[in-house]
Design a protein around this nucleic acid. Structure first.
Lengths: 253, 253
DNA sequence: GCAAAAGTGTTCGAAATACACCCATGT
DNA sequence: ACATGGGTGTATTTCGAACACTTTTGC
C-alpha cells in the first residue's frame, strides 16, 4: 500500500481523482535459484522496505490499478494477477509510526484516515523483470522469501497470507506458466512446486504425473551449461494446460 | 451493495462516519428441501430485489460490516462468513437505471460516484434464520437458487461468482458444519454436497469416505417422521473436522 | 402390503507411493 | 576420471468408481 504511491508522471493528480482510503498492494513473486522471491521497495532516504502499492483511481478498476502498479515496477504487461484478500481491519498498523518514518516523503495528513488495501499476488518470470523504484522510493529489488526484513505497514502479514492463498490455490493456478521462463525443464518445474509446497517430490512420480496430463511438449533442444547431463526443455501447451486447470487441476501435483 | 443501506437505528449517521464508496454485500446461503437458497431483499414500494449489503463504517473492519449486515438480516451472530471477491470495476451496472428505480427511497446523488463492493458469502442454518427487511426494503425472504429473479446492481453476477468460489473452496470450508442443522443425517449431508457440486454421489462411497475421516459421531437417536426408514443422526467432532479441513481437506468428498 | 428412502459389501482398475541405477556433461 | 545432477521402470498398495439388494417406516 501507501496512499500516494503513483507513477512519477501522475504523482500530482488531485485527490479527487482517487478513490479515498482504498489502495491496491501487490505481492510480486518470481522464482530464481530455486527460491521464491518478492519484489520490495525501499523508501527514499530510509532503510524501510514495503510492498509496491498505490491508490485506485476513480477512472480505473481495482484490477487495473494493480496492473498499473505492476507494470510500473516490473516493466511487464499482461501479468498474472490474483486478488487474494482485502485487508480491511480498522487498525492494521501503527499509523503514527508510519507518519513519523515517512514524514519527509509524504505529508502526514495522508495517514489521517485508515486505508483499506486490496491484496494481489502476481506471478512473473523473474528473468524478464526490470525492477524500477517509483517517485517515493530509492530502490526496488528482489528479496528471497526466507530473508524478508521487517516491512512497513502490515506487509509482512500480507506476504504470509499471499503465500498461504497461493498454496491453497496451487491446483487451479497456472503457477508454472507464469513463474518459469519459456521453455523450462522438468527439474525446474519440480523445484518450483517443491518450494511452494515446502516438501520434496519424487522426480520419477512427478515426471510421470505431469507427462500423463498431456499439457507439456518436449522441445528438440536441451538446456546446456551445467556441469552435468543436459535436461530436456519443455513448453506448456497452453490450451490443454488451461483446460486441465479449469476442470479441477493438478491435484497437488 | 447499496450505499446507504444501514440498520434502521443508524440510518441517519453522517457520511463522515462511512468509508466512502465502499460497501459489503452478502450472499447468504441456506439449505432447505434439498436446495440451496439465498436471502434477498425487496426494495420499498418496488418489485426490485437485491442482496443485503451496506456501507462500511469508519469505526469497523470490513468483516465487521458484513457481520453486522448479516446479523441485522438473519438475527444470527457468529456466522461463517467468507470474503470471496472485490467487485471493483469502474462501471459495474447502469447507475442511471438504479437512480431512477430507487429515487423515492434514496437521494440520487448517493449514486453519483462508483461503489466498490466486497463480496462475502455466508453459510447459515436455514432453520435458525429470521429474515428481516431493513429501513429501505419491504420484504426479506429466501429464494431458491434456481429461481432467482433479475436483481438490481450486478447482484446476479455476484451470486454466480460466490457459488463458483464456494465450489472451488469446498474442500477447505466447513460447509456441512454451517449449512446443516445439528445434528444431521448422512443423506442430508450428501444432498448438500450434491447440490453444491451439481452432480450425484454414490451413497455407499460417500458414507465410507466420510466415516473413514473420523470426523463424525453417530448419535443414539434417529431422525423420525418420514414415511420410510429412520436415518441415523450425526454430529461433527469439531476439533477433528477442523483439523482435517486445515490439512487439505475433504478432497471433493 | 406397499411405496419410499436408508443402509450396507465386494470387485476392479487407476493412481499414488516407494525405491535405485545408469547416463550425460563440464571441469 | 569424477562429481553432479538428469533421466528412467517396476512392484506394491491405496483409493476411488461401479454396482444391487435388503431393511425400516408410515400410510
Amino acid at each position: 500500500m501507501s496512499p500516494q504511491q503513483t507513477s512519477p508522471t501522475a504523482q500530482h493528480q488531485k485527490d479527487a481523482d482517487l478513490v479515498p482510503q482504498l489502495t491496491s498492494d501487490c505481492v510480486i513473486l518470481g522464482f530464481h535459484d530455486n527460491q521464491l522471491r518478492v519484489l520490495l521497495l525501499r523508501w527514499k532516504d530510509t532503510p524501510f522496505w514495503s510492498l509496491p502499492g498505490g491508490p485506485v483511481r476513480q477512472s480505473e478498476s481495482v484490477d487495473a490499478a494493480a496492473n498499473r502498479i505492476l507494470q510500473e515496477r516490473t516493466g511487464l504487461d499482461d501479468i498474472f494477477l490474483q486478488q487474494f484478500r482485502i485487508f480491511g481491519e480498522e487498525v492494521r498498523y501503527n499509523r503514527k509510526e508510519i507518519q513519523d518514518k515517512l514524514k519527509h516523503i509524504i505529508a502526514p495528513d495522508i495517514w489521517y484516515k485508515r486505508a483499506i488495501s486490496i491484496g494481489y499476488y502476481a506471478l512473473v518470470d523473474y528473468s524478464k523483470v526490470n525492477p524500477a523504484p517509483d517517485a517515493y522510493t530509492d530502490e526496488c529489488r528482489w528479496w528471497d522469501i526466507q530473508e524478508i526484513p521487517s516491512l512497513l505497514f502490515d506487509h509482512n502479514y500480507m506476504i504470509e497470507v499471499a503465500l498461504e492463498s497461493l498454496r491453497r490455490q496451487l491446483s487451479w493456478q497456472p503457477i508454472g506458466y507464469n513463474l518459469l521462463p519459456d521453455p523450462f525443464t522438468l527439474p525446474e518445474l519440480q523445484r518450483l512446486y517443491e518450494t511452494i509446497l515446502g516438501r520434496n517430490l519424487d522426480p520419477r512420480n512427478f515426471q510421470r504425473k505431469l507427462l500423463r496430463l498431456g499439457i507439456l511438449e518436449r522441445q528438440e533442444a536441451r538446456r546446456r551449461g551445467g556441469a552435468f547431463r543436459s535436461p530436456y526443455l519443455y513448453r506448456f501447451i497452453k490450451e490443454k494446460y488451461e483446460a486441465v486447470l479449469k476442470e479441477g487441476g493438478l491435484l497437488f501435483v
